[in-house]
Design a protein around this nucleic acid. Structure first.
Lengths: 177, 177
DNA sequence: GCTTGACTGTCCACAGTAGACGGTGCATGC
DNA sequence: GCATGCACCGTCTACTGTGGACAGTCAAGC
């Protein structure tokens, strides 16, 4: 079991029915893509392993070679204990910080341009999260768990934007808000 | 060229001499480990590729099979343009958010425990960054580029700590400061 | 001198990433 | 009714990232 398998099981459990690999990819992107990446190749690979281990079972075949699966009882037990007991540590790679770290060796104008683009990207993401949070707030149950993860995104993006404003003047990107 | 190769070249350029694979691993952990992970296996693999491409060249062999390398002229050009022109996007995986996201299906006490441990870990990291920053501030040149990356770490950790305090009451970890 | 431990580089297995590929259903327009 | 285009299904491959085992070698301390 790994985090990708646990995520797939959790998504299958949450939907309460059957999903194909493609549907899982889309659902994962929507529900956890903000802080967890997974690709089509991975999904199909892990789905095969899950079925081999009896944690998911085939559902009724659909059109276009579609082979949906549903979670089994053991699958449900497995992901729930895994998520609270075997969580790995964070994995974070931020290329922009690589450029900042070696900034002394780089062309200052190019670095400033890079940072400006990055700042804009983070600003855009903050706006997206704010819009998403407003949507979730309108849901009947208020979606507390989903909102908690979006809240993380907003805290993060605001911190990054504040950090940009503390950079050395010669590379500091303009702050449009 | 990839980010790992560029980092190795930048470290070699910065040290102004020759380094072995092991030395590069330790130096990388110290200088960029906070936001960029790389392992021994990777370093030796990429070092072989860099030598094959003429971006580093062998230095004078040392004790214990040590085969130090130094950066070449083309190597210097390569990493500098790569860092400002071909930076990939961020890669972030935060397992704790997976648990929060599927929190509705989990045991609330176990989740709270998990979040408490995570909060403590982030608090510890913030203290480490603050101590590191104080050290860097005492350096003759003030180490502006290194301090900028540590500053990112502090902004990030403070944002995460603030986020913990916004979680639903039944899973919110205690806030000891 | 000898042991211990840290260090050298090598190797392997698996997970994550990126993208090409052939086949198939479905909607669209004729 | 039928042809076309497109979105989608699952497969596959190559490369990068991760974690850990391994054998050989030097140095420090007893």
């Amino acid at each position: 079991m790994n985090a990708t398998q646990a995520s797939l099981l959790a998504l299958l459990d949450g939907c309460g029915g059957e999903l194909t690999g493609g549907e899982l990819v889309r659902l994962a992107e929507l529900r956890i893509g903000q802080f967890w990446s997974l690709t089509r190749s991975q999904v199909y690979r892990e789905l095969a392993a899950l079925e081999r281990d009896g944690l998911v079972e085939p559902g009724v075949p659909g059109p276009r070679e579609a082979r949906p699966v549903r979670i089994t009882g053991p699958g449900r037990d497995r992901y729930r204990t895994w998520l609270t007991e075997q969580l790995p540590s964070d994995s974070i790679r931020i290329p922009v910080l690589l450029a900042v770290s070696f900034g002394a060796s780089l062309d200052q104008a190019a670095l400033r341009e890079l940072l400006t683009a990055s700042r804009q990207e983070h600003r855009r993401r903050l706006h997206d999260y704010e819009a998403l949070d407003a949507d979730l707030a309108r849901a009947p149950d208020g979606e507390p768990w989903a909102r908690a993860t979006v809240s993380f995104g907003m805290h993060y993006e605001r911190a990054v934007l504040a950090w940009f404003d503390t950079l050395p003047a010669q590379v500091r990107p303009p702050a449009p808000g």
